[in-house]
Amino acid sequence: MSPLDDRSGERHGGLDRPHQGAAPLLELRDIRKEYALRQGLLARLTGRAERVAAVDDVSLAIQPGEVFGLVGESGCGKSTLSQIAVGLLAPSSGQVLYRGADIAALRGEARQAYRRGVQMVFQDTHSSLNPRKRIRRALAEALAASGQPRAAIPAKLLALMDQVGLDAVMLDRLPHELSGGQRQRVGIARALAMDPALLVADEPVSSLDVSLQGQIVNLLRELNARLGLTIVLVSHDLAVVARICQRIAVMQAGQIVEEGPPARVLFAPEHPYTRTLIAAVPRGLAGRRSTREVAPAEA
């Protein structure tokens, strides 16, 4: 039941296969992010404060057109890493390269291109939308920021809503009037408004119910297929990531411990941590322990 063959043919959408060897869309080189532990004033002033690395020398290359999965448990550094990738956080050391250019050195037009080209979808659908802004305004602001002419915005709004599978009447709602799944679609629409090349989705479905998770995951998959959008899916859920990604990286304690196609990672894991992770996933009836058989009622 575990074909290790290359299933990339069915997995890819927009582009035939990841362009191994071609220039990566986004490359992380020896990324390190340290935080100072909260300590006394003296230690902080003298710079002797103890530091802890949330991301510890990570290198990754995201190929154009692929869906890349980053898996790990809370605190493993995957969120920090994705914030560094989109430029919300600066790494302590290391380089982020977008289309081959170090983003720290980008200025003017090139910087704008990176800024628009890399967007993010957030986990918490409540805080990802401004509670006081109607959906229309949230999306229109994004379109305006992407440089759309004012006259083109109304038509673009409808196109965006259609793209993420939302009815246009939702435009006049406030975020709290939508369900979690609908808010997540709006979050995706807002990212798409920037016409990005890369979408980093940080736990996009973990706050949603099981019956709705698939809808969002399928939407991401579709965007990859139809638009050729490159997607980095960050999640703790190995099963979801394995289902739609062409490559998976498993992260533990700030480091990537295993990387490869999902079939290999799932069915022939090399790192003990990956094995632990796989073993911990509940398996329904198959996971019932034989020792659980309790004594009959009347002995």
Binding site: V86, G87, R116, S127, A145
Partner: peptide, 13 residues
């Protein structure tokens, strides 16, 4: 700290 602020930053505002 809210994500809608991060989203605005990502739009280059």
């Amino acid at each position: 700290q809210a994500n809608y602020v991060a989203a605005r930053r990502l739009q280059g505002v």
